[in-house]
Design a protein around this nucleic acid. Structure first.
Length: 205
DNA sequence: CGGATTTGACCAGCGC
DNA sequence: GCGCTGGTCAAATCCG
């Protein structure tokens, strides 16, 4: 687990888990970029988010301590090369103009870490305080639910996230963040209390 | 009318 | 080399 340098624990006193995650990720992701070359280029993590299996590419790095155990945070860096359409490895968030893959010929591909957390929720989109624009949706193998692709709408900020509901457990939503926000959170985090309340209601069903 | 979403096409990587 | 899959693009469409 040499790719882990952040473990998230947050208690019920935290203003919001998603805000805490977003904040932590924004602050810490740059630390992971240098680790990106440690791993192979596969993207098979898409097939499973099972935290019990060390072989999977998204690894459990923390879990919610606020009473509903289904909210887990994962970290991984198996980013498909095709996702390297932007480069914020220097923290600038500026688009690399090389090409779609953001890789010069002959250069080693730059992979970005991904951070995912799964939440038991009836709603797919959890408000994390940032504004997102959907740019794609794909059917996923072995999953009856599609995966949605979102980009941060803030100009110059190229953070992406993927949202997918688990086929084997329809109540679980996996949100995967990729990149580092180059701007402060846009919305009040008061909203998260509402989301939390919602999640607690649903999780008790 | 402008911004957001949908959706089919396209491309690259990987495994066989 | 080819097929499969994931990820992105962009035109069309939707919606406030």
């Amino acid at each position: 687990m040499d790719n882990l340098d952040a473990i998230f624990h947050y208690s019920s006193s935290a203003t919001s888990p998603t805000a805490a995650i977003s904040s932590h990720l924004s602050l810490n992701m740059s630390n992971h970029y240098s680790l990106a070359d440690h791993h192979s280029n596969k993207s098979r993590y898409m097939s499973s988010y099972d935290q019990s299996d060390d072989d999977h590419d998204l690894r459990l790095i923390g879990e919610n301590r606020n009473g509903f155990s289904d909210n887990n945070i994962f970290v991984g860096d198996r980013v498909s090369p095709t996702t390297n359409s932007f480069s914020t490895c220097d923290g600038s968030g500026e688009l690399n103009t090389e090409n779609k893959l953001n890789v010069k010929k002959g250069e080693k591909k730059i992979r970005k870490p991904k951070y995912a957390f799964q939440t038991r929720s009836q709603v797919d989109i959890l408000d994390d305080g940032y504004r997102w624009r959907k740019y794609g949706q794909k059917a996923v193998k072995n999953n009856k639910f599609p995966r949605s692709y979102y980009r941060c709408t803030q100009q110059g900020c190229n953070v992406k996230k993927q949202v997918q509901r688990l086929s084997k457990d329809e109540g679980v939503v996996v949100t995967t963040y990729e990149g580092m926000h180059t701007h402060p959170i846009e919305k009040s985090t008061d909203n998260f209390e509402h989301i939390l309340t919602q999640m607690q209601i649903y999780s008790s069903c």
